[in-house]
Amino acid sequence: MSRKTDNTQTQESPDFDPQRRSFLGAMATAAGLTLAPGVILYSITKSQPTEARELYAAVSSDVRWGMLIDLGRCESGCDDCVSACAKENGLRGHGRPTTDAQWIRKVDIKDPQTGNSKSLPMLCQHCENPPCVDVCPTGASFKRADGIVLVDKHTCIGCRYCMMACPYKARSFVHEVLEDQKSFAPRGKGTVESCTLCVHRIDSDRLPACVEACSDTGGGAMLFGDLNNPDSEISKRVAKYASQQIRADLGLKPGIRYRNL
């Protein structure tokens, strides 16, 4: 500025202020540079043909995926669901049971007072109020609108806090370098993972691998469906037969229900 703090007027101010002009120019350039990527992205999304948007619509909360597992049909020695999950998602053991990933596992429980024993599959419960989502510092652990709880491995920093928070010990950490992943089940070293409810299958109207295997070769104990749809098979069954959620006292409202527990 050509004005000074004392009262002497040193010279006439010019018709325009060159500094102000260059400042405005710099600001305009900066704004343009900031907006440009957004404009490009916007035009990318706009350039997609309209059919693509209708075909590939976003998932909505009208649907809530859930499972009903009938323990009356679940046999103690059978682990078809576990093998199917491992085969579908490319989970390979490395001979290190403490660090190998397990997305679903069979748990054997026995009542010491009566001697009665049962077997049940334990997997991510896809809670309505998931503690793993609450504690994730980057928001990588998230719940999709249709109720499936996932880990966004692009954002996961591998702090394992969600593993501390999960009451069901559903999450695993990838402890080694992985190769030859399945193209629909990306997983990598240093990130946390858990059962995805076979979201890649669900999005193309198929059943999760464990449910399919159980009905094909197992005991037929697992039923998958939309809990929000009153006409679905699962909604009718949970209305008709009593079913429980594990650790219901925590108020997490899991999407996996067990019958005959």
Partner: peptide, 14 residues
């Protein structure tokens, strides 16, 4: 403690 009062075992060290 997922199943209070029960004896529990699994391949994932439950």
């Amino acid at each position: 403690n997922l199943f209070p009062g029960m004896e529990v075992s699994s391949s994932f060290f439950d």
